[in-house]
Structures are given as structure tokens and as C-alpha cells.
Design a protein around this nucleic acid. Sequence first.
RNA 1: GGCGCCAUAGCCAAGCGGUAAGGCAAAGGUCUGCAAAACCUUUAUUCACCAGUUCGAUUCUGGUUGGCGCCUCCA
Length: 465
Amino acid sequence: MQIYNTLTRRKEDFVPLNEGEARIYACGPTVYNYFHIGNARPFTLFDTLRRYLAWRGYKVTYVQNFTDIDDKMINAAHKDGITIGELADRFIAEYKKDAKALNISPADIAPRATEHIGEIVALIQALADKGLAYESADGVYFDTQAYPGYGKLSGQSLQDREAGARIEVDENKKNPMDFALWKKKKPDEPHWPSPWGDGRPGWHIECSAMSMKYLGENFDIHTGGVDLIFPHHENEIAQSEGATGKPFVKYWMHNGHINVDNKKMSKSEGNFFTVRDIAEKFDLEAVRLFLLSSHYRSPINFSAELVEQAQNGLQRLYNARDTWKARLDCAVDRLPTPKEQKLIAQTLPALKEQFIVHMDDDLNTAGAVGVLYDLVREGNTALVNEPALVAARAANDLLAELCGVLGLLYREGEAVDPQIEALAAQRQQARAEKNWAEADRLRAEIGDRGYIVEDSPKGYILKKK
RNA sequence: GGCGCCAUAGCCAAGCGGUAAGGCAAAGGUCUGCAAAACCUUUAUUCACCAGUUCGAUUCUGGUUGGCGCCUCCA
């Protein structure tokens, strides 16, 4: 597989540090609110990366943190009159609901910053010992001047940065680019003990501490949105490599942003959508398909129309799955016809190979989704009435397998209400008697109850609306 | 000012040196009691524009135009 590495700005072969293993750290949400559509993109896409690598046989360890202490947490907790712990508990629970609806698998490890203060303090101490951190009146800062590699991820020198930076002069820092590792306690703020007095960790240090704790000082992939390249990821590199003297992350992957009406989403612009908002109007699985339908590095636009398009496309996928399942039920255990034989021996394997080629090319999910539709068409063409069991099974299995890799088609067909089933049977009877009026009436009644009944030569098929 | 990204049909979107995947929408057809679903056909002689490299460029190079992002919390 090839992965575009932000560090080198090119696609590189993915060669894990330990053969057969993939250790991934994904920057997770700050749990002070529901997460928004922009957050949903990396969560969904890198969940797909993880699924894909696992499918290809890697032993994947996927860590995604919860940031549960920072200014936003403090402000939100204050506003609601609760502790940051209560706030975090609440929105971690809400995160899990939305993530589940988007079919994002739980991370193998989901560490919370506040539960890793010890590791964070130790890391800061290590930096201080190496002369890369200094204490000032309001905290402990990373000394960017003392660390030669600063800027290698974002590709800019300190001087370039400073030239145009709109940074206020801060007398607590030696250099404007220095950033806080530890913030000394202020009134009404949560705090923990440290060698530099009570206080709380800076934002960047938590990811360094937690990623290295669970994945080692040197691991394979670190993911996040493009906006995190600077300063967050740049700072993580400085902290981690500064402390250990070893290379930190081998591959940095960054997803593009989601815009709304071609503008950056922001609360002040009024174009801000949480996933929870969207779930009220749309099926979140359509949102997942929408997100997978373009390349993860491209900026994309979000709109209701685009989700509707995805919803319609998703319906095509579900139609295929449902009809194929029905075909499987009435498949015949016989030798496949030449056409079916070709499907089994040539078409299906070729499609699977194409799927892999796309995914291997820097996680080209859009191309992979295209293969899914090709598969649907091939299957629809080949799986006519009473297909050979082996053919029906092969097509069904491949569709389920590939959709599983992309995290699609996860809605299980629920058991049909026996009453609906009875109505459908009655309608079948009426049709046999050519009592079209009664048949149409029953179809309407079934429709009112939320189901669509379709006729096929082998009988009816019920689908949920 | 520094760094970087993007421009493919009505909409969305792959492709990135060998002559334009796929989805949505639309139209016609086949099938069907009628539908639905499905299938077939049609919808970009062309990939923002201008040069250049090449036997050949949507794909590479330079420029122009138009959008966007980071440099401050941010996915």
C-alpha cells in the first residue's frame, strides 16, 4: 500500500516498523460538545483505513484519544455549572452514539488526557532535563529555539513563521513560537500536582504522552485534519523526538476539510452542523458514503443535496444486497452455468483486485466505491432467477466483504412483522386470482405500514421504506 | 508577507503520459396486470485558460485566471 506522507510530501510505500503490524494514533475529539460534520471526516476515514489494514492482514492497534482538559472544556463546564469530568463523561457517551451511527468502530484504546497526567509530567520532565523546556511565571514552555528540527512537518522555518505571524508578545515566553507544556493553576480551574506547581497540561503534550505510552516511542501512522499540521503535530514531533531522541512517527496522514457553501464551517457564519443535527434529517450511513465518495485529502463541500445523492446511491447498494439475499434463498444447488462460472472465476476476483488497487493507492475510497457499484451491476446481471448456489453465495459474500471493509451496508434487514408478511401473502393470492384492485389496495396498505412490496417471478420481496 | 492545496459533464467524483471509472439527476427502451427493482441505450471529440516538453498531455513544466487552506483554538 502507498500512503501520502505529509512529512515527505509524497506517496510512500507503507512499510510498518514491525512487520505485519500497524500502530496508528488518531487525534480524537475534545469532548465539550457533540462532534460536527468536519470531525466526522477523519473519524470515518481513518476508521476505514484501520478496517482496510486489518482486512489486508495487519495486526492493527488503533488509538484515538479524548481531549478532556483544555480551555474549551473549562469554559463549557463552567457555563453548565458542572465539573469537566462530568462534561467529558457526557460527551464521550454522546460521541459513542454518533460514532456508532456512522459505523465507526471503537478504538482499541481510547485514552483520556486527565487519566495520563503522570505520563505527561514525566515527559515534560524529560524535556526539561534535556534543556528543551523552561519554566516561567505562568507555566512550562517548550523551547523551540533549542530544538533544531522544529518546522519539519509544516515545512516552514521559525523565521518564516515569525515574519507574518499575528502573535501577541508574551512576556512568559522566550520566543513567540514557544508553546505551553504545562499551565500553572488559575483560579477556578482544574489542576493536578507537578514539580512546577499545580496546574494542567498543555494541549499538545497529551497526544505525545498518550501515543507513546500505548504505541511506543516510534510508531507507524498518525492521523488528523490538515489544520493540525501546525502547530499541533509539529509540536508533538518536537516534544516526542526531543524527549526520546528517536524518530516519532513514520507516516503522517492528514485529511482535507469539509466546507459548507465553499466556506469554512464556523459557528459565527451559521454554517455549522453537528452530526447530531444531520442525523435528524438524514441517515448517517448516507453521510458515511458521502465521506467515502471523495479522496480523503481533497477539500469537500457539504450540503443537503450531496447527502441526498449519497442516500440514493446507498439505496442502490441496499437494493442489490436485499435482492441478492433473496436470490440466495431460492438458489439451486447445481453446477453453475458458463455465465455464472465466469462470474465466479473471473469477474468477482477481478473486482476484488481492483478494489485493492484503489485502496492501496493512498486509500482511494472513491475508486473503491466505484468498484462496489460495478460489482452491483455484475451481480444484478448474473444473479437472475434460481442462480446456482455457489454463484449466489460468491457474489453475496464479496459484496458483504467489501462493504464491510468500507464500513457500509451495516443496517441489518430487520425481521418483517408477521402482519405485513400476511398482507403480502394475501396480495400474492389476489394477484394469482388477477384481482388487481385488491392487490393494489394491499400494496398501498403495506406501503402505509412502511414497507415496499416488489414482485418477482419467484414471489414477492418486502423491503423497509 | 511565508507555506501549501484545488479547478474533470446538470450535480458529485475517480483517473494523473497512451487517447475520459462510477454514482446522482434526466430521457428512451426491455421486463411487469400496473408498479418497483433490475438491465440496455443516450447525456464531456473533452478535462479553467495560454504557452512549452513529447510521437502522444486531462495527466509533466512555466505562466494566467478563478477558488480554498495553514501561519491564532480548530478535524
